[in-house]
Amino acid sequence: MNNRKKILAIASTGGHYVQLGNIIKQTGYQPEDVCLIRTKISKNDTPAKVNELLVSDISRDTLWRLPIITFQLAYYLLKFKPRWVITTGAMPGLIAIFLARIFFIKTVWVDSIANTKKLSASGRIAQRFAHKVLTQWPELTDSKIEYHGKVI
């Protein structure tokens, strides 16, 4: 995993990451084209796929980990120099988008399919920073939020 990646895909472990995995599967890219990053949820949590990396978990309750995950993500962005960063959320994806913008990498936020009535809180923040913001419900589109299908 040292050559340049097409996509760096990141999400917090759980439903966000399941959706991200489905989207990546739908792209048809090979594992070597994509760097998958998810959050480590326990001490004995280890990567399950060849192109998977783990970073420190962070949420609104664990903001003190911000410097750690920022450093980890910045390192991976510089190492893999992806063309695009894609995330389904939540906070780790937001941080990846901020950092990607600093490194002039294109970014796309795909809001979770769980948000059926309005964009997630993180998605609304991402709207201001990401190059593209997608929803998985056609009803939620507007001038900036696009719909291009859903994960199921």
């Binding site: 989207i23 990546i24 739908q26 048809g28 695009w84 294109k106 299908g149």
Partner: peptide
């Protein structure tokens, strides 16, 4: 049934 493929769209972006 959905006409659009989310993954296909992401691929076209890249």
């Amino acid at each position: 049934s959905d006409e659009e493929s989310l993954g296909g769209y992401i691929r076209s972006l890249v």
